[in-house]
């Protein structure tokens, strides 16, 4: 099962080869109350210890696929189910230090049934999360 909060404890990890990390991943449950076509997601801004990683650059990993923002915006068939996790993949050469970090995620969800000018709705959560392996 997933953890209750948006940002999951497990899955907060460095990515890329050990010794030459390329970035880190933040695992989240779907930032919505129902399953969602990927085209209805408009990116995820991640902030770690005050450093902001913008939604335009971050990628989404779900199941065995990775989507950059432009691909996600056009992906009208693949969906993210309510019981699945995804991970936000963030570029950061060298990765993060093992230890406790303040992690924030601002997910941008598009709701067609919200008025057009505010239809990209921000879902924000912050927590302390522990990254285990360098």
């Amino acid at each position: 099962m997933l953890e209750h909060q948006l940002i999951q404890s497990t899955g907060f990890r460095n990515i890329g080869p050990v010794g030459a990390r390329t970035g880190f991943a933040v695992r989240i449950r779907i930032p919505n109350y129902h399953g969602t076509r990927l085209s209805q997601l408009d990116g995820f801004t991640v902030t770690v210890d005050g450093e902001v990683y913008g939604f335009e650059q971050n990628r989404l990993g779900i199941r065995d696929e990775v989507y950059v923002l432009a691909e996600m915006r056009e992906e009208t068939t693949a969906r993210w189910g309510l019981l699945e996790w995804g991970e936000i993949l963030v570029d950061k050469p060298g990765g993060l230090e093992p230890g406790i970090h303040k992690v924030e995620v601002l997910a941008r969800i598009r709701y067609s049934y919200f008025p057009p000018d505010v239809h990209v709705f921000p879902m924000h959560e912050a927590r302390l999360a522990t990254l285990c392996v360098a």
Binding site: H34, S39, T76, S112, P116, H119
Partner: peptide
């Protein structure tokens, strides 16, 4: 059964 029609299918 609650359903959605994703009118604004892409940006």
């Amino acid at each position: 059964f609650c359903a959605w029609v994703d009118t604004r299918i892409t940006l």
